[in-house]
Amino acid sequence: MVEIRQLYKSFGKVSVLEGIDLSFDQSGIFAVLGPNGSGKTTLIKCILGMVIPQKGDISINGDSILRKWNYRNHISYLPQIANFPQNIKVIELIYMIKNLRSQSAQELDLVEKFGLQPFLDKKLGNLSGGTRQKVNILLTFMFDAPLIILDEPTTGLDPVALIYLKELLRKEKDRGKTILITTHIMNLVDEIADRVVFLLDGKIYFNGTADEMKSQTGQRNLEHAIATILKKEYY
């Protein structure tokens, strides 16, 4: 489904991605992990077309997506910081995104599930960080796109919302979707990820299942597995 070949990206002198080769060719949940500055977000943004790589190619369903925009009709994206226009009401934002995508959306279920009903008529500027993140999640999942990209989806969520989020992810996976996720919450990865891609200094350090990673590093849980890798590299 998503095919990344020899992807290079640097910002000025800082090289962020150094020849990434990666493909997500079946449905499932793929966790992209790595320490800060390893290039996770850049990689995701490359797929979304927000960052333009210097070299390499990304194709989705066989078509290169560089400098194109139509393919984003088939992607739902949850950005890291949900900073919306301050003066717009939640309901208006929902309608606006729906309007922009000109796709049908199931927002009502999600509104109910995340308890956003009382906030619909509030301005986004007046919402708490957690509520905003819920709105953010709602905007992502209300469309029925085959590729879902989530950048730190758990930020600011209360436990109940987190459970709903996981539920949502499983449901979407069961519907045959490809889900890319970056997160710092290793439990989440352990729990739901089918495959883990570990980025380090712009390269793919590990690509496999969480269990494989654990056994490779000889650790019992993922957090320690990653810590082992990092220690080996840096210390």
Binding site: P79, F84, P85
Partner: peptide, 17 residues
């Protein structure tokens, strides 16, 4: 500058830059 994040949200939508 104040709408930069929102612009990013838009950029992830199927829209031309």
């Amino acid at each position: 500058y104040t709408s930069r994040e929102f612009t990013e949200l838009l950029l992830s939508q199927p829209l031309k830059r």
